[in-house]
């Protein structure tokens, strides 16, 4: 009946490297349709998306600023996915880290940077871990699907943030729903004068390197990869899959917490409801695009940072909606997911 059949087989190496590139080209082709509908020239649009942001130093640095939280959430998601734990809750864990960082930054005004910044980093990490704890325990001990629980935890913390900003931290004079500012000592230093690029970027790169070594070079990393790839096989080899998964499920929260801490100490200096523009969810896109390889994920995060900076430029230059950036991102994800299937299947002639 059918001349071709699909067989399960791994794709050759050249194809694996080609997949992200083809995915990007294909996504641009598809999004061109939307650009045309919005009444702009696709080539001009993509020029503004990809080239203009990199053509001046200040906007190129802004791309890195935008990428910083994405690198962290992308790495957080990568860490969990590697162990077969599908954490969709990086968004909420990011806010948990931000809340802890703000609280420490406000309440210890007398401490110098050298003391308060490490406290905020540790606090942000632990708060993320704490927020990831409930879904992690539910998963490991009761086998309750983490995709659902981690996602729902995001909504819960948004209401908690809303309470904090409208009640506990509400400014009695202005009435704005925002927390007081953290002390000046609690600010991350700017790496380059007249830009917003802050120490958090270095922190993110450090996390990339640490997680890379953790996953590829340590026994924990091997246990995680084994559990994620084939839990039955890992269990047979004597690995405590539950404990491994629990570790991954908690550390992922900590890394996402760092993303929130970085945004507080580096950009905003106080808590607002719109602290994250869906960095937690976009981190999933970065992790998938980067093929769950820490270095690839970091690159993908910077690329997404470029697109979201670019969407501002496109909007200003051509008068199209900013949301075009979201469309590009979403298309990219869908195309990549489709292309990833090719990694594991091959079409053969009967």
């Amino acid at each position: 009946m059918f001349k071709y059949k699909i067989v399960r087989a791994s794709a050759p190496v050249w194809m694996r490297t080609l997949i992200p590139i083809v995915a990007i080209l294909l996504s641009f082709l598809i999004t061109s349709i939307f650009v045309i509908i919005a009444g702009a020239n696709p080539l001009a649009a993509f020029y503004n998306f990809l080239i203009v942001p990199l053509s001046s130093q200040s906007s190129a640095l802004e791309v890195l600023v935008k990428s910083t939280p994405l690198i962290l959430t992308g790495i957080a998601v990568t860490f969990a996915f590697t162990a077969g734990y599908f954490n969709i809750g990086a968004e909420g864990q990011l806010y948990a880290g931000a809340i802890a960082a703000v609280w420490i930054g406000i309440n210890f005004p007398q401490l110098p940077s050298i003391a308060i910044l490490p406290m905020m980093i540790v606090g942000g990490f632990l708060a993320g871990v704490l927020w990831a704890l409930i879904p992690a325990l539910l998963k490991v001990y009761l086998k309750i699907d983490e995709v659902v629980t981690t996602l729902l935890m995001n909504s819960i913390i948004m209401y908690f943030v809303s309470y904090l900003l409208n009640d506990y931290w509400r400014n009695p004079q202005s009435g704005y729903p925002q927390s007081p500012d953290i002390s000046a000592a609690a600010h991350f230093v700017r790496l380059i004068p007249k830009s917003r690029l802050h120490l958090g970027f270095i922190m993110a790169l450090l996390v990339v390197v640490i997680v890379y070594f953790l996953i590829k070079r340590t026994p924990l990393g091997l246990r995680m990869r084994a559990s994620g790839a084939n839990a039955a096989g890992a269990r047979f080899a004597g690995i405590n899959v539950s404990r491994t998964m629990l570790t991954a499920a908690l550390v992922t929260g900590g890394i996402a917490g760092l993303a929130g801490m970085g945004e507080i100490a580096g950009i905003h200096f106080h808590l607002i409801e719109a602290l994250s523009s869906s960095y937690g969810y976009t981190g999933i896109i970065a992790a998938t695009l980067g093929g769950l390889h820490p270095l690839g994920v970091a690159l993908a995060a910077v690329f997404i940072g470029l697109i979201s900076t670019g969407s501002q430029t496109v909007s200003l230059a051509l008068g199209v909606p900013v949301y075009l950036g979201d469309i590009v991102q979403a298309t990219l994800l869908l195309v990549t997911l489709g292309m990833l299937l090719l990694q594991n299947y091959r079409i053969e002639r009967r």
């Binding site: 084994a226 790839a229 084939n230 096989g233 047979f236 080899a237």
Partner: peptide, 12 residues
């Protein structure tokens, strides 16, 4: 196939 992990290397 259940006892071994196909995605990891022979050495691992």
């Amino acid at each position: 196939h259940e006892g071994m992990i196909g995605d990891l290397t022979v050495a691992e």
